[in-house]
Design a protein around this nucleic acid. Structure first.
Lengths: 268, 268
DNA sequence: GCGAAGGGTG
DNA sequence: CACCCTTCGC
């Protein structure tokens, strides 16, 4: 069976309901992980997701800010609820679908100043990575697990439009890149989208709203990720190469999110 | 030549550009007076008005609030600029089109408490009426003049959904009704829309956004007016009865203003 | 630039 | 309810 897993920072699920429906109609994800739903649980457009064919939901929501959800075509079983956000924000949600554990995160952006002592938001971001890394280090690598979401770090030099300029900017500073690398190493994760689109190809999943024409300037960052455990590698590579991509055309739609969806196919 | 003069409180001309275009396409006003354009001069959608066939503009604008404009199919000449708003708001704009002077006003709503001493907004509203009345009293009645706009007073008992209840509510209190009557008397104005739709017919031009179904409850007010000087009466009645109306169907359109357009035809 | 938030107005 | 404002975050 093919299992298509997608992750998308929608920047308000209520304002983006139409675009989500279009993406689901065009690409038929089996599991859709959302970040920045920006609504309370009761405000989530459940009916729209039912009509899209994704009736099974796990939602972690709060008023107005953050918020994550997993919508699934197939029934959802419980998966461990991680306690990695010290501020109590709605930034983590989990599910087990077709035997695969999915952990969906919206990691804090981290503010402007890349200094833990000066900037509590940056400290929170690194603390989030540390807690998450510690949890993953204790896992069984053979269990099928996907860690997905807006991790708010562009981990490689080809994941940013300018490695030199971005090295001083939050999302691509050395300390964040190292935190990402430690998370990846903790369980031997595969960065699946990067495997499918190898370096030195540039690959982005986010472009600022501030650019007039995001295609022309193309000052993007790859912030949205699908990391898979060793136990899920076989399912990802059963057809040879990894089938994973960024749906950057979605960034051109009417009233888009600033993030594009990212998807990966598994055979399970 | 037929001259169709319309007035409409659009409640943001930028958000209502489509509805204005539709109204102009369906009713072909020669002169369209707008209130509550809610934008600065540079933000006014000039191009859209050119495309509607109303390229001649007079705009009195300020940031975000109030703001009035006159858009015309025919060239505009200068008309007296009245200094009747003591707060310096963008509430007055004038034009002379085809020999007819048009004075377009957005008179202050006046707040909640109908007491000049307690409520400075109510005092401002009455002061505005007094200054305007004084200016009009000094005019030549034989000159063709139209005073139009959102005057924020429902002057007659059939201009409100409930005369008894509204007599204690700002817009229909006795002191406002008297202020309106004095303005009307100052130059011998004709309330043209009321002439076309005589009492005791109820006639409204505004319905609150708060009502679920404005047709069902029909708790409207007639706040938008076309007053004409004795010198313009002949042009209004040349075909017998006055051709003036409220376009209440517009209140049912998608994303409507809370005010409906009002129009009057002249033969000049 | 584009989302939220709360506050003010009609 | 539905516009404006400002502040905030990304």
């Amino acid at each position: 069976m093919r299992l298509r897993l997608c992750t998308w920072n929608v920047n308000s699920v209520r304002l983006r309901a139409e675009q989500v429906a279009r993406f689901v109609a065009e690409h038929a994800p089996d599991v859709l992980c959302l970040q920045e739903i920006k609504c309370q649980d009761a405000e989530f457009p459940r009916k729209a997701f039912e009509e899209m064919g994704l009736p099974h939901l796990r939602i972690a929501a709060q008023k107005g800010w953050h918020g994550v959800a997993i919508a699934s075509r197939l029934p959802i079983e419980d998966a461990p609820r991680l306690d990695v956000c010290r501020e109590g924000h709605a930034r983590c949600v989990s599910a087990k679908v077709a035997g695969v554990e999915v952990q969906n995160f919206y990691i804090p952006a981290g503010g402007d100043v890349p200094d833990r002592a000066q900037n509590p938001k940056f400290d929170h971001k690194l603390d989030f990575f540390e807690k998450l890394t510690a949890d993953m280090a204790a896992r069984d690598p053979k269990a099928p697990l996907a860690v997905v979401g807006d991790l708010n770090v562009a981990p490689g030099e080809f994941d940013v439009w300018s490695h030199r300029q971005m090295s001083r900017v939050v999302s691509h500073t050395p300390v964040e890149v190292e935190a990402f690398a430690r998370l990846k190493a903790s369980l031997g994760f595969t960065d699946l989208v990067r495997e499918a689109v190898p370096e030195p190809q540039k690959l982005f999943s986010w472009w600022s709203y501030r650019a007039q024409d995001f295609r022309a300037s193309n000052r993007g960052l790859r912030l949205d990720h699908i990391l898979i455990s060793p136990g899920l590698r076989e399912a990802a590579f059963r057809l040879g190469a990894a089938a994973a991509r960024v749906h950057d055309d979605v960034r051109e739609w009417e009233r888009p999110s600033d993030h594009a969806p990212v998807s990966a196919d598994f055979v399970i």
